[in-house]
C-alpha cells in the first residue's frame, strides 16, 4: 500500500515507530471511549498539572488543545495512531483536563442553514 515514489511531499510524515504508543499507554490497548474522529478536544487548563500519572504526550495534548481541535488533528500533530490518542484522552477526561465534544448524533443531519452556510462558504473560497 505504500508507494514511496508517489508519496506527496506535503504530507507531514515523521511518524515515530509503531511500538512506542504501547509504552506510552502502558499497555492499555483499548480505549474506553469511541470518540468520533471529528470530536473536538478542548483543554480545560492553560498548562498540565504535575501528575505522575501523566506522560509528556498528555501534556502535548493539553498544549495543542488550547483551542478546540479534532481528534484526528490531535493524532496527526502528535504522530500517533487514533487509538493511542483515544487512550490518552481517557486519562485526560478522567482528570477533567480536557473536554471532548462529540459531533451531532450520526443519524441526524444539520438543518438547511448549515448546508447553505457550507455551500456559500465553499463558493467564497
Amino acid at each position: 500500500m505504500t508507494r514511496p515514489d508517489a508519496e506527496p511531499l506535503w504530507v507531514d510524515d515523521e511518524a515515530g515507530p509503531v511500538v512506542r504508543p504501547y509504552a506510552m499507554t502502558r499497555g492499555r490497548a483499548r480505549p474506553r471511549n469511541g470518540f468520533n474522529v471529528i470530536s473536538l478536544v478542548t483543554a480545560t487548563r492553560a498548562a498540565p498539572p504535575i501528575d505522575v500519572g501523566l506522560v509528556p504526550e498528555h501534556a502535548r495534548i493539553i498544549e495543542l488543545c488550547q483551542r478546540p481541535l479534532a481528534l484526528a488533528e490531535v493524532a496527526a500533530h502528535l504522530h500517533l495512531p487514533l487509538g493511542t490518542v483515544r487512550v490518552l484522552l481517557d486519562d485526560l477526561v478522567a482528570r477533567q483536563l480536557v473536554q471532548v465534544s462529540e459531533p451531532r448524533p450520526p443519524a441526524t443531519l444539520p438543518d438547511d442553514s448549515v448546508f447553505e452556510a457550507l455551500i456559500h462558504g465553499l463558493r467564497e473560497l
Binding site: 506535503w10 504530507v11 492499555r28 490497548a29 483499548r30 493524532a75 487514533l82 465553499l122
Partner: peptide
Amino acid sequence: AAVSETQPLRTEEVLSERGVGVDDLTGV
C-alpha cells in the same frame, strides 16, 4: 489538498490482524 486550507494531514490507525482496532496487546 486542492480545497483544504492547510496541507493535508495524515493520521493512522493500527489494526490488529483481526481488524478490530488496537485490541489484544499482550505480546504484540
